[in-house]
């Protein structure tokens, strides 16, 4: 079965990102496919590679990147929400005249249409948020 997942909250502040990750991991382990994980609202903060949690805490961003690398999961950051919150890749940074970029490995930035498409293409869409 194909699952789509929407994550609405940033890492560490709210459990949503952890719940979404644990669900995705369990789904993959059970042989299901994750069609896409779409990060919206403050959820876009899951995609900054500048995060530096204490060593004894989980690294939420790295965990996502590893999920993408190991299982080819499509991690999409909403461009509109990301621009508001200062998450950008090299292209976005250049286009908007910024002096840095911070998108983590395995994530890509795209439009809200990707969320709608996830709703259409997935057998189930789950929303994790506050």
């Amino acid at each position: 079965m194909k699952f789509g997942i929407q994550v609405n909250e940033g890492p560490y502040q709210h459990q949503a990102a952890d719940s979404a990750y644990n669900f995705a991991k369990a789904a993959i382990d059970a042989g299901h496919e994750i069609f896409r994980i779409f990060f919206y609202h403050d959820g876009v903060n899951n995609g900054t590679r500048l995060t530096t949690p204490p060593q004894d805490d989980r690294n939420i961003v790295k965990r996502w990147s590893e999920l993408a690398a190991d299982h080819n999961v499509d991690l999409v950051i909403c461009v509109a929400a990301a621009q508001r919150r200062g998450i950008c890749d090299a292209d976005e940074s250049k286009r908007n005249g910024k002096d840095a970029d911070n998108l983590a490995e395995g994530f890509r930035i795209s439009g809200l249409g990707q969320l709608i498409e996830a709703g259409i293409e997935s057998d189930r869409l789950l929303v994790f948020g506050d």
Binding site: F3, N22, F23, A26, A27, H32
Partner: peptide, 10 residues
């Protein structure tokens, strides 16, 4: 558990 969560969703 989370596996059960996935099963429920499916």
């Amino acid at each position: 558990d989370y596996t059960g969560f996935v099963e429920l969703a499916a």
